[in-house]
């Protein structure tokens, strides 16, 4: 297995009076897709937000590459090469698609080659370049959200439920795009409830429950073990299909 790019060790996160993460231990190997599975309220989104510094870990440590990033601010974490595609997509609806992309290129003007690649990956980005982002459909907003995260080369992309509420055709398109992104050696930590989609692109998997990681291993092993799927998630891959 490749060296770990991101490691969470005993991470606890409190939000107000709530103790959400209760000692998360998670390793994300470099260069692949790690899928974080779990039921609603298990702590998946909180894990991503804690990595990104949007919520501060009250205990434990987060290591990214050779550096501890636990106490860094969100902009500093972003500038070290981590991008977030949040569950609500975080699109600036008052801005155009182009303006959303310009802001996402925080380190300077957009690289034309990279932009061309993104427009090929997500055609609506080019088609609606000067349109208000607020007028895009749900699937197009999701594409814009992912496109923003990859307009500059990133070492790690945190993606929170990119297929939530999308039509099957859009889910397939999004899956294809993530597969292509995976080919560029970008490391992805993907939170996903759609196990069929997650298993088709995931290399490694971690399952969360009650604010802890209750299983981690290779995705192909979990796919092959129906009994384990039922034990961990209550449903098997067959039941999803």
């Amino acid at each position: 297995m490749a060296e770990n790019l991101l490691t969470l060790s005993g991470v606890h996160t409190h939000i107000g009076p709530y103790h959400i993460l209760q000692g998360v231990d998670l390793a994300v190997p470099e260069g692949g897709v790690t899928v974080l599975l779990g039921r609603n309220g298990a702590g998946k989104t909180t894990t991503l937000r804690t990595i990104m510094g949007l919520w501060t870990a009250s205990q434990g440590g987060i290591r990214f590459g050779d550096h501890v990033i636990t106490k860094l601010s969100t902009p500093e974490i972003s500038r070290r090469g981590i991008a977030l595609v949040p569950e609500d997509m975080g699109i600036f609806t008052d801005l155009t698609v182009a303006e959303n992309m310009i802001l996402a290129a925080a380190n300077g003007p957009m690289d034309p080659k990279r932009l061309a690649w993104i427009k090929e990956l997500f055609p609506p980005i080019g088609n609606f370049w000067n349109s208000s982002a607020g007028t895009l459909s749900g699937g197009q907003k999701q594409m814009l959200s992912v496109a923003r995260a990859i307009i500059e080369p990133r070492r790690l992309i945190l993606i929170d439920e990119p297929t939530k509420g999308l039509a099957p055709a859009i889910i397939k398109a999004m899956t294809d795009a993530l597969k292509e992104l995976k080919e560029t050696d970008t490391t992805i930590l993907l939170v996903e409830q759609n196990f069929a989609m997650a298993s088709s692109i995931g290399d490694t998997v971690a399952v969360m429950d009650d604010g802890r990681i209750i299983h981690s291993g290779r995705m192909d092993e979990l796919v092959a073990d129906v009994a384990l799927q039922e034990k961990l998630m209550g449903l098997s891959l067959e039941a999803h299909q």
């Binding site: 990104m52 949007l54 601010s73 969100t74 902009p75 972003s78 500038r79 991008a83 977030l84 949040p86 975080g90 600036f92 802001l103 996402a104 925080a106 380190n107 923003r148």
Partner: peptide, 9 residues
Amino acid sequence: EMVEALGYR
């Protein structure tokens, strides 16, 4: 929050 996540202070 999203502006911060894009790397701006």
